[in-house]
Structure formats: C-alpha cells, structure tokens
Amino acid sequence: MCGICGCSQTGHSGKLTPLQGKLQPVLTIGHAPDNARLVQVEQDLLSKNNAYAAQNRHFFQAEGIFAINLVSSPGAGKTTLLVETIKRLQGRFPMAVIEGDQQTQHDADRIRATGTPALQINTGRTCHLDAQGIGLAVMQLAVQPDSLLVIENVGNLVCPASFDLGEAHKVVVLSVTEGDDKPLKYPDMFHAADVMVLNKTDLLPYVDFDVAQCLAYARQVNPNLQVIQLSATTGENVTQWLDWLVGQVAQASQVTPTRGIASL
C-alpha cells in the first residue's frame, strides 16, 4: 500500500511522462512505497551558514569589533580604498583584514605592506566567502577587541549577497566605470548592502555615468541605502567615509555588555 495516500500502488514518482502517442506531457500523480511518510523540514538552505554567521556576530558584538563585508564586482577598488583607509586611520584603533579571492595572495600582501595584519582566504572555484571560513580566519588572525575588521569579499556582485558572514554591514563598492545601471542589473547586492561607496569619481569627466540616475536606481532597490561618493586614488571625499567608519567603530566598542563571556 502507498504510504502517502493509502492507494494500492507502490513506487513513488512525480515525473512528467509523455502521453502515449502524443507530444504533450501529463503529470502522473506520484505514489510512494508502503513505509513512506512525509517529513516536515521548513529549513533555510543557508541555515548552516546563517548559524556560523550568528556565532561570528555574537563574538564581534561581545568583543566590540566593528566588522564590515566589502563587496563589489572585480576591480571596483576595494583593496585600494582599504589601503588608503588603513593609512589614514592607523594608530586610532586596531585593524585587521580578511581578504577573499579565488587565487593569489596579492591583496593580503598589499594590506600587510601597511603593517596591518591580514589573512588571505583563497576560495578556489567558489565565488564567495562563507561564515564558517570567516570564523576560522578571525581566530587565526587573533582579531583584537574594540577593533575594525574589514572582510574584502571575492569580486562578484552576485552570490556574496546571500552569504551572511556575521558583519555589521555589507558595504558595496561601485565604480563609475561600470555603468550607472548596475544597481538594477544586480539588485540582490544593492538590496543586501546598507552602504554604497561610489568610487573612482575622479574618472567622471571621462565616462558616460549619470550619478543622479545611478543613485535613483540604487534607492529603488534599497530605499535605505546610504551613499558615499569618493575617489580612493585622489582622496577626494574620503574623509566622509573615514568619519562614518570612526563613528561606527566607537559605537561598537561601547556596546560590549557581554565582553569575555562569548567565545567562538
């Protein structure tokens, strides 16, 4: 007897099978073997990643660590902005960087050249960082309390949007050479981010990029998105970015009621 509906057939199938002699498919109602039963699962596909992310977030909050997840398409200027940021903020509070790239140590080397500890994660064929890897990296780096932790994700505007790493904010970097319609073409990322850095503003005179249109698109996807326009190479308006970071780091280090209790 079928374990699902109690009919006399066995052998479960829900396949589309072609109707005899005709081309259109019909759905054959599936029947399950005797002992079959329904198991309710209701579990998110990312539940494992989300559990690790929650653990990371708890650790960051307990230690007063302000963590951001820096995302963009390849080459938008994440590492350049990060190096400039570190140079300007060095000595104010401890900093640490986790670099995600499919291959090479290049970006971690660029960070280490500033004297700031950095750990490179090579994701190989995978196109994003996950929360479990971040937890391990945080332990290896021995990230200090009341510090700024920047996680530079793999250059990819698509799937890092779905993977929570435990960060306080996702910050999406978009450069003006990429086209002003990127927020509509890759809405998931602009929806997941809280802050957008519009980088390479020094190149605006040379490219056809409508800033107002870009910001309108971005807010259409995410009405609450905060935007900072700057040039990482000329330093134009970088202070607005630094002020935001300094304020967030100060706030994170104040809210540490459970310091010492949490551990990874």
């Binding site: 005797d34 039963r37 209701e42 998110d44």
Partner: peptide
C-alpha cells in the same frame, strides 16, 4: 526572498 526545504517524502 526565502529559499528553504519544505518537506520530504522518505522511507
């Protein structure tokens, strides 16, 4: 925005 496993038929 959800993506989850709802249920299974098992034996």
């Amino acid at each position: 925005t959800e993506m989850k496993i709802k249920d299974l038929i098992v034996n």
